[in-house]
Simulated scan of single mutants.
Amino acid sequence: MEVKVVVVKNKIGLHARPAALFVQTATKFLSKIYVEKKGRKVNAKSIMGIMALGVCQGDQIKLYAQGEDEKKAIEELEDLLLNKLEQEYI
């Protein structure tokens, strides 16, 4: 299992379009992927789950992935959160 702690940088967090992009990225992988915020863990492939977490700028979240492509999944999701969403939504 791969686990990574990430601080969300983009101004609108994981709401609306950024949440959809996050879920689209997660669904590319075979691994089971979860996001945790303040002890609440949801399936990263569920738009409703991600939206329900209410992730905002500056929030610390944990990414969990378990499966054959877990390392690649964590790397791409971290890159999305730290670089790609930040560039698109500044």
Rank of each mutant, 00 (worst) to 15 (best):
I61K: 09
E86H: 00
L82N: 03
Y34W: 15
I47R: 09
E78N: 08
G54V: 05
V7G: 08
A73D: 08
L21F: 07
E88N: 05
I50S: 04
I47G: 10
K37S: 12
K28S: 07
A26P: 08
K32P: 05
A65M: 01
A65K: 01
E88Q: 10
P18M: 03
K32L: 04
Q60I: 11
E78H: 07
K41N: 06
K84C: 05
D79T: 10
L30K: 15
M48L: 06
E78Q: 12
L80D: 07
K38Y: 11
N43L: 07
E68Q: 09
T25Q: 15
K4F: 09
R17C: 09
D79L: 10
L85R: 05
G58Q: 03
G54D: 03
L63G: 13
G58M: 00
G67N: 00
I74W: 09
A44V: 10
A16D: 09
G13K: 08
L85K: 02
I12T: 15
Q60C: 09
K38H: 13
I74Q: 08
F22N: 14
I33S: 01
A44S: 15
I12N: 15
A52P: 03
K72F: 10
Y64F: 11
L82V: 05
M51P: 01
K84S: 04
V55C: 04
K84N: 05
L30T: 09
V55I: 12
D69F: 06
V23H: 10
V55P: 05
L30V: 05
E76T: 14
M51W: 00
Y89G: 02
A19M: 07
E76M: 15
N83D: 07
K72L: 10
E36I: 09
E70F: 00
V6I: 11
K71W: 08
Q66E: 14
A44D: 12
A73Y: 01
L53V: 02
G54N: 08
E76Y: 11
K62I: 13
T25R: 15
A52H: 03
L81Q: 03
L77W: 02
L30D: 15
K41A: 06
I12H: 13
V7P: 08
T25W: 09
Y89R: 09
P18V: 01
N43Y: 00
V55N: 07
G49T: 05
V3C: 11
I74L: 14
A73Q: 07
K45Y: 03
K9D: 05
E78G: 02
Q60G: 13
L14M: 09
E36F: 08
D79V: 03
E68I: 01
R17W: 00
D59Q: 10
L82M: 01
N10W: 03
N83S: 10
F22I: 15
G54L: 06
L85A: 01
A20N: 11
M51Y: 02
G58A: 06
D69K: 02
Y64I: 03
P18W: 05
L53H: 05
L77D: 12
S46F: 00
Y89E: 08
L63P: 12
G54E: 02
I12Y: 15
A52L: 01
D69Q: 00
V8W: 03
Y64N: 05
K62S: 14
Y64A: 01
